[in-house]
Structure formats: structure tokens, C-alpha cells
């Protein structure tokens, strides 16, 4: 019930909008979102009300925050290389389960010795 769920505004009709939450659409009320909201904007939904518009710029700011935190410590294992690698990965998320190669690969992935 405390859940806040991000979604993308699809359609606006007065105080009500339809938002897409990971492919699932639901009505949200805009009464208290507090900012001007347009189609394509992201909002945070709480119990059927948009309680916050999430500007893209601030999404990037979060990312920077994480980086700052890690960069701040030079001993940290997270180098720019690693960051780049992570970003590259994010384009093909979690599809590993669908793409196994042959038998040995699968068993190896699962840590099974035959």
C-alpha cells in the first residue's frame, strides 16, 4: 500500500490519465501531481494518484549520484571501464535464460558438474 510505481503517461483526460507501468496500463489521477504533466512524461503512482512527475534530467542525476559515490573512493574496483561495460549490458537485459547454447554451457551456468 506504500508502494510507489513509476509509469509513463499515455493519455490525459482532465484530472485523469492512463499510464503505462511496464506494459500494463491503468488510470491514475493527476489531482496532486503538482507539476504540469504531458503525454510521455514519467510519474510516480501511489494508490492510483500520480504523486510526482519524474523529470528525465533527475533520473540522470541519480545515476551520477551513484557514480560520485563510487568515484569518490579511488580504491574502488569500479573503473570507467566497468561502468561502460555495465551500460552496454543494460541494452540486452536478462535474456540469458532464453539463449543457452549447448548442454555443457547450461550445466556450467548452473554450476553442475557431470
Amino acid at each position: 500500500m506504500c508502494l510507489g510505481v513509476p509509469g509513463e503517461i499515455q493519455e490525459i483526460d482532465g484530472h485523469e490519465a492512463v499510464a503505462d507501468f511496464w506494459g500494463v496500463e491503468r488510470r491514475v489521477r493527476l489531482d496532486i501531481v503538482g507539476d504540469a504533466v504531458e503525454e510521455g512524461d514519467y510519474i510516480l503512482n501511489h494508490v492510483g494518484y500520480a504523486i510526482r512527475k519524474i523529470p528525465e534530467s533527475e533520473v540522470e542525476q541519480t545515476m551520477e549520484l551513484f557514480e560520485t559515490m563510487l568515484d569518490a573512493d579511488p580504491e574502488d574496483m569500479l573503473t570507467d571501464d566497468v561502468m561502460e561495460e555495465l551500460e552496454a549490458n543494460s541494452g540486452a537485459p536478462a535474456a540469458g535464460a532464453q539463449e543457452e547454447g549447448d548442454d555443457d554451457d547450461l550445466l556450467e551456468e548452473l554450476g553442475i558438474d557431470v
Binding site: 500500500m1 508502494l3 510505481v5 507501468f21 511496464w22 506494459g23 500494463v24 491503468r26 503512482n45 536478462a94 540469458g96 535464460a97 532464453q98 548452473l110
Partner: peptide, 20 residues
Amino acid sequence: VTDERVPVTGDVTGAGELLG
């Protein structure tokens, strides 16, 4: 079980997140 290996459609996870 490895979380990311479990096949779940986007709709199901989306609706799941929305409803907790």
C-alpha cells in the same frame, strides 16, 4: 533458483509491481 532465469512476461511483472 536464479531470479533472472525465470521466464516472466513484462505484463506480469508490471502488474505484479503495480499491485505489490
